Simulated scan of single mutants.
Amino acid sequence: MRLFVSVLCCCLLLAACSVTVDESDITQEEYEKSLGTSNVPLPIDDALYIEQVKRESIVDKLSEIFQLDWLSRKEIDAKDIEYIALGDSLTDGVGDEYKRQGFTERLIERLEKWPAIASVTLDNRGKRGRRSEQLLALLEKGHYDKELATANLVTITMGGNDVMKVVKTDIFSLKKEMFDEEKVNFKNNYEQIIKRIRAKNTEAPLILIGFYNPFSIVVDEITPFEEIIVEWNNEIIQLAEEDGNACFVPVMDLFHTNEDLVYHTDFFHPNSRGYERMTERIVSAMTACGIEEMTDGLIGFEE
């Protein structure tokens, strides 16, 4: 909407400038006087030069009024922002055959189209197999203190490996109670992760990305894992709501089947198409959360 209004105002201003620029900028008579001649047609090159000056004058007027570099459509005071991505293999981009770090680089492409953002610097700290207690331990040791303090945006993917930790304990004797017990630990760890981040940065939006059931493409019918994943994601939703400056991104439905070929050949991680869909969902969720208002216009997405 912001971009639409700017373009509409631009069209109206251009219509007005078509009259005022001719009166205030270089005219044929003024140009001839500057050459010391009269009644002499402008050379083609000189005429083109004057037209260029007029166009540049319009651009200057637009830039002054809208505070935009109209040629690049960037705000004059557009900022370089810092984005730190924390989490597991989904943040690391495992399975992305194009080696674009999963959703993170794709998200940057969308962010850099926003007029208030000059560029985005990515610090991707995702690691395959990472669990919540491991990320918490790193934060407690101050591994990311400096990066978090200056970050304008933080994303987190966490939970899949915590579930797999239970699965690997005894895959043939699994009971839901085992997942319920671990869920308590997971929530406590995630809560402390957020507190550690907020101790270093109170303003940066936290984008908490949910996780999916990787066994859904192996078994066609509904399994107890569906309920387990939903419950664990609900814990993340609650934490996002409690923070007040966080946004939850649901992705479970994106990987319920492989009909759209969203899985990597390991049938566990997304492929490039899967990460594209994740990116679109992240953008949609951030927009729905009011990311533009949340950041006073610094972060947003073109409509």
Results as ranks from 00 to 15, higher is better:
100 R>W: 02
196 R>C: 11
98 Y>V: 06
170 D>V: 03
106 R>S: 10
238 Q>G: 04
26 I>W: 03
287 T>F: 00
197 I>R: 02
301 F>K: 06
61 K>D: 04
169 T>Y: 10
175 K>D: 11
123 D>A: 13
263 Y>R: 12
300 G>D: 01
37 T>W: 04
259 E>M: 12
260 D>E: 15
129 G>A: 12
234 N>D: 14
116 A>V: 00
152 N>T: 01
94 V>Q: 11
297 G>C: 01
157 T>Q: 07
215 F>P: 06
62 L>K: 03
140 E>T: 06
239 L>W: 05
167 V>P: 06
191 E>D: 08
288 A>W: 01
118 A>W: 02
67 Q>T: 03
40 V>W: 00
26 I>S: 02
63 S>K: 02
70 W>P: 12
230 V>M: 07
182 E>S: 12
228 I>H: 08
75 E>F: 02
267 F>V: 09
21 V>E: 03
176 K>D: 11
177 E>D: 11
262 V>I: 15
118 A>C: 07
124 N>W: 08
34 S>T: 06
100 R>Q: 15
135 L>I: 09
130 R>W: 10
146 K>N: 12
150 T>L: 11
130 R>I: 05
155 T>M: 08
196 R>E: 15
29 E>G: 05
146 K>I: 05
127 K>E: 14
230 V>Q: 13
118 A>E: 13
256 H>L: 14
